[in-house]
Measured scan of single mutants.
Amino acid sequence: MDTYKLILNGKTLKGETTTEAVDAATAEKVFKHYANEHGVHGHWTYDPETKTFTSTE
């Protein structure tokens, strides 16, 4: 398992979190669920070199 990072740049919520996942697709599902639960619906990007997802509203 690898550690993946999420950076949230929402209108009402900003911050970072991490998750352990078997691959990027699994981490993306976890992070999108997390963002949706916190009302963040933004544009998603992923940097495979740093294993970092960013959601920007």
Rank of each mutant, 00 (worst) to 15 (best):
T3C: 13
L13S: 09
V22T: 11
G42L: 09
K32S: 05
E57N: 04
E20G: 04
T17I: 15
V40L: 08
T17M: 15
V22A: 14
T26E: 14
F53V: 00
K32T: 06
T54Y: 12
V22R: 12
H38S: 07
W44D: 00
N9W: 12
E57K: 02
T12P: 03
E20I: 14
E28H: 10
T26L: 05
K14E: 07
M1N: 09
P48W: 07
L6Y: 03
H41A: 09
E16F: 13
K11R: 12
D47Q: 06
K5H: 12
E49I: 10
M1G: 09
A24M: 11
Y46M: 00
H38C: 11
I7K: 06
K29G: 08
A35L: 12
Y46I: 00
G42C: 04
A25V: 09
K32R: 15
K32D: 03
M1E: 08
Y46T: 00
K5R: 13
V22C: 12
H38N: 11
H41E: 11
L13H: 15
T19G: 02
I7T: 04
V22M: 13
V40R: 02
Y4Q: 02
Y34E: 02
G15P: 04
L6H: 02
E49F: 11
G39V: 03
I7E: 04
T45C: 10
K51D: 01
Y46H: 00
L8I: 12
K29M: 12
A35S: 05
T19V: 14
G42K: 02
A27H: 01
K51S: 03
K51A: 03
T52Y: 02
K51F: 08
T3L: 11
D47N: 11
H43N: 12
F53A: 00
T19H: 07
T52C: 05
M1P: 10
D2K: 13
T3Q: 08
T56Y: 10
V22K: 13
N9L: 13
E20L: 15
W44Y: 03
T19E: 03
K29A: 13
H43T: 14
T26S: 13
D23K: 02
V30R: 09
G42T: 04
H33A: 15
N9T: 08
D47K: 03
F31C: 02
T56Q: 07
T50D: 04
G10F: 14
A27P: 01
G10L: 08
I7S: 03
K11I: 15
K11W: 11
E16L: 07
F31G: 00
E16R: 05
E57P: 04
D2R: 09
L8T: 04
L13F: 15
T12A: 10
T52H: 01
G42E: 04
I7W: 03
K5M: 06
W44T: 03
H33L: 14
K29W: 07
K51E: 02
K29D: 08
A21D: 01
T45I: 07
S55Y: 11
K14R: 12
A24L: 09
I7D: 03
N36G: 08
T3I: 13
E57I: 05
K14C: 14
K29Q: 12
A27S: 01
A25N: 08
T56H: 07
T3R: 08
G15V: 15
T26H: 13
F31R: 00
A25I: 11
T50G: 04
N36I: 13
W44F: 11
A24P: 10
L8E: 02
K32H: 10
E28C: 14
K14P: 04
